[in-house]
């Protein structure tokens, strides 16, 4: 197991946002995390990436406890994430956003740059090509020199994925990667995630688009009121009576 969550609880004042959640993510899986609004999905992702600390319980990454580490050390162990409310570097161009995301893989030492050594120029060219490749992967290489704040909503989400990919993570946490996207964009992100999984990247994603989740994920965990309802394959999950009641039934009625 690449990632194990054991009995994690997180309270905010009197609210138990997570109430004894346990789940395991297999290496190479595309694991979906679904549940109604307020079920605790984003809180769980925040705990996993150490953006916030759990009140109790354990998170194991590579069988080692990581819930006490600061976020940057988790990233150094190979975990990257995107944010539900998109946290780009707005004043930078798209390419610069990805370059900033190369922090863990590109040392970019100061002194060779200070003395304009040819090795620094060569190395920098390589890094920039890699950054462009990340942009190409999410399909926004044409906008490499546009400021991030000039992008459309869907493009911003994709740029955030590109920036996360720049650190070559082993586990990628995506918080609503296709929210607000057009159908064509949703399909593109779907095939991107499939191709990442083929390269042995493990992906844990939150999404409300049920067709997207059911078609993409090999495992799905359903959260409701901060508790795990069920973990299973898409078939098991979509037939589970409590899931239908808590989530799918409601969303079908709305459709």
């Amino acid at each position: 197991m690449l990632l194990q969550v054991k009995d994690v609880t997180r309270t905010f004042g009197g609210v138990r946002a997570l109430d004894g959640v346990s789940l395991s993510v297999e290496k190479g899986a595309v694991h979906g995390l679904i549940g109604p609004n307020g079920a605790g999905k984003t809180t769980l992702i925040n705990v996993l990436s150490s953006t916030i600390a759990p009140s109790s319980g354990e998170v194991l990454f590579d069988d080692r406890p990581v819930h006490t580490l600061p976020a940057y050390q988790l990233a150094a162990r190979g975990m990257a994430r995107t944010f539900q409310n998109i946290r780009l570097f707005p004043a930078m161009t798209c390419l610069e956003n990805v370059i900033a995301g190369q922090h863990l893989v590109a040392p970019r030492p100061f002194f060779p740059r200070l003395f304009c050594l040819p090795s620094a120029t060569r190395e920098e060219k390589g890094y920039r090509l890699q950054a462009m490749a990340c942009l190409a992967r999410v399909g926004i290489e044409a906008k490499a020199h546009f400021p991030a704040k000039a992008l459309s909503y869907g493009e911003r989400r994709r740029l955030e994925i590109a920036r996360a990919l720049a650190s070559r993570p082993r586990l990628l946490l995506l918080d609503e990667p296709v929210a607000g996207m057009r159908q064509k964009e949703v399909e593109d992100v779907g095939s991107l995630i499939r191709s990442l999984a083929k390269e042995d990247m493990t992906i844990l994603l939150i999404e409300h688009n049920m067709a997207f989740v059911m078609g993409l994920c090999s495992r799905i965990t359903v959260l409701n009121f901060g508790r795990t309802l069920i973990t299973g394959d898409p078939d098991q999950v979509s037939r589970h009576p409590e899931v239908i009641e808590a989530y799918l039934g409601v969303s079908e009625n709305h459709a």
Partner: peptide
């Protein structure tokens, strides 16, 4: 530059 733009995102990038 990353910290100036968004400290939380900078932390998540390592």
């Amino acid at each position: 530059e990353s910290i100036r733009e968004d400290e939380t995102a900078a932390g998540a990038m390592g």
